[in-house]
């Protein structure tokens, strides 16, 4: 079985490495300094388990997991984060609070070994990610993968969102990026005073709007500063009027 450690503090990695030596069946494939290395290493090694720190440079542990299509079983390690701990508990995902003893670590490994045949674990991680995405710290930006690169988009730079099959297209001045989420996910995540769902398939940053034009019967179109045109449905029009105070 293969394991990865992803933590930005070298000593925090070394203690996990030390504890892991007591489990000869688990091979440590790589140690990663940050989430970028983590994403690469997960693709490369397809580990069975990862030990993941939350507070890391650029992208945190949760944001890293969001970038992976089928996240592996994860044991979170963190020093202190009330919000995350509450989320772990309510989604039955195992976590280790630093500093942790060897006994506590062994218990986490045993629990994982006992469960690893089931899919429950992965579902828990998915629902955990949904939950933490709503945290105030995470609603300020969106992390996406584009080509082989990872891009961090501050929410104020989003022009509009467009539903596209199982994805949402995030339009910015640098073009669009795909995120494997639903429109209603973004509707919950983003500030309703700034982003308005103008249409079943569209959500617009109202600060980008320059004008609104009639379009076909009973529907409208908003024109953005970038020149892009975004459809507005009948209900979307009522919402927009309310937000814009027209």
């Amino acid at each position: 079985m293969k394991a990865l450690i992803i933590d930005d503090e070298p000593l925090a990695r070394s203690i996990i490495k030390e504890y892991l030596q007591h489990f000869p069946q688990i091979e440590l494939a790589q140690e990663c300094n940050d989430g970028f290395e983590g994403v690469k290493a997960i693709h490369q090694h397809q580990p069975d388990i990862i030990f993941l720190d939350i507070q890391m440079p650029k992208i945190n542990g949760f944001e890293m997991l969001e970038l992976i299509d089928n996240p592996p079983a994860t044991i979170f390690t963190t020093a202190f984060d009330e919000y995350a701990i509450k989320a772990f508990e309510s989604h039955a995902v195992d976590y280790l609070l630093k500093p942790f003893s060897k006994e506590r670590f062994d218990k986490a490994i045993q629990k994982w070994l006992g469960q690893s045949a089931t899919a429950i674990l992965k579902n828990n991680t998915q629902s955990l990610l949904e939950a933490v995405a709503q945290s105030p710290a995470q609603s300020q930006r969106i992390v996406v993968k584009t080509g082989g690169k990872i891009k961090i988009i501050p929410v104020e730079e989003i022009h509009y969102l467009e539903a596209s099959d199982d994805y949402v297209k995030i339009h910015t001045k640098e073009g669009h990026f795909l995120k494997n989420k639903t429109m209603s996910h973004f509707e919950q995540l983003l500030d309703a005073n700034i982003f308005t769902r103008t249409h079943r398939s569209y959500m617009v940053n109202i600060q980008q709007i320059t004008r609104m034009e009639p379009y076909e019967k009973e529907s409208y179109m908003v024109v953005l500063k970038s020149g892009a045109q975004v459809p507005v449905s009948k209900t979307g029009y009522a919402k927009l009027k309310l937000v814009l105070g027209l």
Binding site: E9, A12, E18, K98, P99
Partner: peptide, 10 residues
């Protein structure tokens, strides 16, 4: 907590 964790590793 992170400092204590470093000590534990050292």
């Amino acid at each position: 907590f992170n400092s204590l964790n470093s000590i534990s590793a050292l």
